[in-house]
């Protein structure tokens, strides 16, 4: 990749008491690519994700966004830069409909006096939600039904659509298929590719090797809090990546 990176972390260190979750972790995301962040349990994936989304502050190291050093002090900072996150638990409000969730914290208000009183423009939010679902191919029959009554796949669709609608540069997905069946996982793959095709980079944190090899352009591997490999999918194999993750030789990894 010759384009300058969209996001780069350099030497991120994070300690929790005596435990070093990250020991100088590097990570690179190029514009408009799907990059998988892989690692065994405890490799530091979720800590790195939290640092990138501003949920935690690293003890050492630097985060560069479009070449500029940035401070991520809260999830709002990440959002301001055009980074959205699909959390593993989806972070949806079950008692609200999809448009309430899509616009949570960023509601559209009525114009004029009513808006100044805080009145919501539900119709505008609903229309934009339906439009986003259509564009992303998220299949939800009743866009005014509460999320609580929806299937796992539909909820995933709502959460991904929310990230998509607001992300201008990058979407981070933490284990997006962990709770899904085969068909639904394939649908998430389609969504990821559609997101990338709109020029938004996707960071995919996953355990699911099959899934990663289906959609990722590149793969970066963390082990014991450090990046141990950065490979292009075309030039590698599942065996090689598993070896990176475990630190064992190719023949030893099964």
């Amino acid at each position: 990749m010759s384009a300058p990176p969209l996001l780069e972390t350099r030497g991120i260190t994070k300690r929790y008491g005596h435990v070093e979750a990250l020991r100088g972790a590097d990570f690179t995301v190029y514009p408009g690519e799907v990059v998988a962040l892989l690692g065994d349990n405890g490799a530091g994936k979720s800590t790195l994700v939290k640092a990138i989304t501003g949920t935690i502050q690293p003890d050492e190291g630097q985060i560069l966004f479009e070449g500029q050093p940035v401070q991520m002090t809260s999830p709002l900072d990440a959002r301001t830069l055009g980074i959205e996150t699909v959390f593993q638990d989806l972070a949806l409000v079950p008692d609200m409909d999809p448009s309430g969730n899509l616009f949570l914290g960023r509601e559209i208000l009525r114009p004029g006096l009513l808006g100044r009183l805080g009145m919501l423009d539900r119709r505008a939010m609903h229309e934009r939600t339906v439009e986003a679902f259509t564009r992303l191919g998220v299949n939800i029959q009743d866009a005014q039904a509460k999320v609580i009554g929806m299937s796992g796949g539909q909820r995933q669709g709502v959460a991904v659509a929310r990230a998509m609608v607001w992300a201008s540069k990058m979407v981070l997905m933490d284990e997006p298929t962990a709770a899904l069946g085969v068909v639904q996982s394939r649908h998430v793959n389609d969504l990821i590719l559609r997101v990338r095709d709109q020029g938004v980079a996707v960071v995919l944190v996953s355990h699911n090797m099959q899934h990663v090899f289906e959609v990722a352009d590149r793969i970066e591997v963390l082990r014991l809090g450090k990046r141990v490999a950065a490979r292009r999918k075309a030039d590698t194999s599942i065996e090689e990546v598993v070896a990176d993750m475990t630190g064992l030789s190719v023949t030893g990894a099964a």
């Binding site: 999830p75 638990d89 949806l92 409000v93 309430g100 949570l104 960023r106 509601e107 009145m119 919501l120």
Partner: peptide, 28 residues
Amino acid sequence: SFVLSQTRFGQYTCATGSNAEAARRAGI
């Protein structure tokens, strides 16, 4: 009734009651 069902504050009230963590992550 207006505040709870039609306004942003009402929306935040429902959100904190339904999934407070999601509301917090949404910047509320």
